Simulated scan of single mutants.
Amino acid sequence: MKNELNTAKLLAAFEVVMDKGAKTEFGKMYQGVEASTDYDGYNVYLKGNGVQLHIGFHNTYDLNYDQTHLRDSFLKKLDALVRNTVLDDHH
């Protein structure tokens, strides 16, 4: 996959899930997206609908999925989480 993802937006989506989500065994779940982090916070993970996203140090990322349409809908969902939160905050 050569198209670059906006890691700032991905991290913003992670923050939304961590802020608004319900506790799970690994992290928090919000609107079908689960967010978690490793013990030192250098690696964050977002997953849902058959897609796993790992964001590491220096904004590196690894996106794992079986089907392109699942990846696309997952990324759209993350984008919507960020967009809707900005609208909710009325800034």
Rank of each mutant, 00 (worst) to 15 (best):
A13G: 11
V16N: 01
V86K: 12
Q31A: 12
V17S: 07
L81V: 10
G27A: 02
Y45H: 13
V16C: 02
L78S: 04
D19G: 10
K76Q: 14
E25Q: 01
D79I: 08
M29V: 09
N43M: 11
L5V: 13
Y30C: 03
L11Q: 08
E34L: 01
H54I: 08
A12P: 02
L87C: 05
T60F: 10
K76T: 13
K77F: 02
N43H: 05
Y30D: 09
S73R: 07
G32N: 03
K2L: 10
T7F: 11
G32F: 13
N6R: 12
G50I: 02
F26Q: 04
L75F: 01
H58T: 15
A8V: 14
L81A: 06
F57S: 07
F26S: 08
K9R: 11
F74V: 09
A12T: 10
K77R: 15
H54Y: 07
D19M: 13
N49Q: 14
K76F: 11
E4N: 04
L63Y: 07
V17R: 03
T7G: 05
M18L: 08
K28Y: 13
V51F: 05
N43P: 00
N84H: 15
I55H: 10
G48T: 10
G32E: 01
N64F: 09
F14G: 11
L63R: 13
T24G: 06
N43W: 05
A13E: 10
H58F: 14
R71N: 01
F57H: 13
K77S: 07
T85D: 04
A8M: 10
L87I: 12
V33F: 00
D38L: 00
M1I: 06
N59V: 10
Y39Q: 03
L46S: 12
V16A: 04
F74L: 15
Y61E: 05
T37V: 15
N84F: 14
L53I: 12
H90F: 04
N84W: 13
F57A: 06
G32I: 06
Q52L: 06
V16T: 04
K2G: 15
T68D: 08
F26P: 00
K77N: 11
I55D: 01
K28P: 04
L81W: 02
V82L: 05
Q52Y: 04
L10P: 06
N43K: 12
A35Q: 04
S36D: 01
K20H: 14
R71T: 06
E15K: 07
A22P: 03
E4I: 06
D62Q: 15
V33P: 00
N43F: 12
M18G: 05
L78T: 06
Y61V: 08
G56R: 00
G32T: 03
H54F: 10
D72R: 06
K28W: 08
G27R: 01
H90Y: 09
D89S: 14
L70K: 14
E34M: 09
E4Q: 01
Q31H: 10
F57W: 02
Y65R: 04
Y65C: 06
N43S: 09
F57M: 08
Q31D: 14
